[in-house]
Design a protein around this nucleic acid. Structure first.
Lengths: 219, 219
DNA sequence: TGATCAAATCACCAGACGGTTAATTAGCCC
DNA sequence: GGGCTAATTAACCGTCTGGTGATTTGATCA
């Protein structure tokens, strides 16, 4: 019945919910404790301060989302649909990213190396898809990646705008249907010009990629 | 020396800055008053409550941004570049949209009819561009519009992700140069298949989409 | 069983915060 | 000048909030 590890997890879960809903400033430690069914004192016993708990949540969530990219399909239309699904299923993650973005004081707190590696790998994967002819070889891959993330995150990050524009909430199933269709179209549009949509797994043959080999990568 | 209208405006300006930076929950009425060089009592004298003041700011900003679309170019590449510029110049607006998105209790408070009309007009304008052959006629226009807004807003709404992905802050002028080039490419990609990039019609024909003639100069 | 120590609880605090009461002062009309 | 109104200020209040010191309770082991 007495189990500190269990208590920590109950707090983390409750804190995640509360911080996702209200953010750092808006969240109340008392509310977290209540939600966790735990004495408020335990928050500070386990995590030191409200802020420390918050950044712990942020760190965990961003680490947790590292895995989701590993199974990214080569074909862009499929990848976009998959990302969209991920966002819809984990709106809390989107909201945490948003709180983090607005927290001007956050600084590089949550920018641990693992996160950098994650995005580097993502861009590399995309570049590979490009070399294999799944993607037009004209655009800057980093910016393409940002934009693809943007397109999939956006409706869940700004539901009020999605609703104003389409008249539907992004949770609406009609929205989902339309969105999926659109993302498929967009993904295929990003394929090289000659080829409407790159074949799956034809990996071998590179599309020669003439002059576009320059890696103008970040850093 | 005594001028209530002036006082109101000083408060509104200070409140805008404070709310953009900290959001509703994070902002402090005392800080707003200090920033405005005004007695704290005046906030409540003029606007009733912190919340009322906040939603007044939200309403004003969203009304203010109604105009910026009127001059939207037909050509998608030019439109994207212009929107990007708008976002970069008015990051506060982006941040307010973000705070609004996260405020679950906001409800339809700021969804006044004017805003609906604004987006309706935007979609209509885009649909017109589609009919005139500036845009592929396949995609759902509402979803295309969301996505274009997404692509232009995103780097300023999630600067931490932009930095993680490209290695640069979105305020960096190198970022601007790359981003502009990318947006031009993307815009042209949305043109109908046969036509790489639709002609401007009235204006003298641009140097088509070949990409190298663009003025990528910052500012 | 009883000593021990960590997990959990209780009661409380100092300061911050949104908001208000009441007094003061500046402009304005006569 | 003198009264009148409204803009402005000073001081204050009740409540909420993150955080803490002291205490109790339960498991573990000799």
């Amino acid at each position: 019945m007495r189990d500190l590890a269990r208590t920590r997890e109950k707090i983390l879960e409750a804190a995640r919910a509360e911080f996702c809903a209200k953010g750092l400033a808006g969240a109340r430690t008392a509310a977290i404790a209540r939600r966790a069914g735990v004495n408020k004192r335990m928050l500070f016993y386990c995590f030191g301060s409200k802020e420390d708990l918050y950044y712990e949540i942020l760190r965990r969530k961003s680490a947790e989302s590292e895995r989701f990219l590993e199974s990214m399909p080569d074909r862009m239309s499929a990848a976009l649909v998959q990302w969209d699904e991920k966002c819809r299923e984990d709106v809390d993650w989107v909201r945490l990213l948003e709180w983090e973005a607005l927290d001007l004081s956050a600084g590089p707190v949550v920018i641990q190396p693992a996160r950098r590696r994650f995005f580097k790998a993502a861009v590399a994967k995309l570049r590979l898809a490009q070399e294999q002819g799944h993607l037009s070889d004209e655009p800057d891959i980093a910016h393409l990646f940002i934009s693809l993330v943007a397109v999939t995150l956006f409706p869940y990050a700004f539901p009020q705008l999605a609703r104003l524009i389409t008249g539907m909430a992004p949770t609406d199933e009609n929205f989902l249907a339309e969105r999926t269709e659109f993302l498929r179209w967009l993904g295929d549009r990003l394929a090289p010009r000659g080829r409407p949509a790159a074949r799956r797994e034809g990996a071998a043959q590179r599309a020669d990629g003439a002059g576009s080999g320059e890696r103008r990568g970040p850093r």
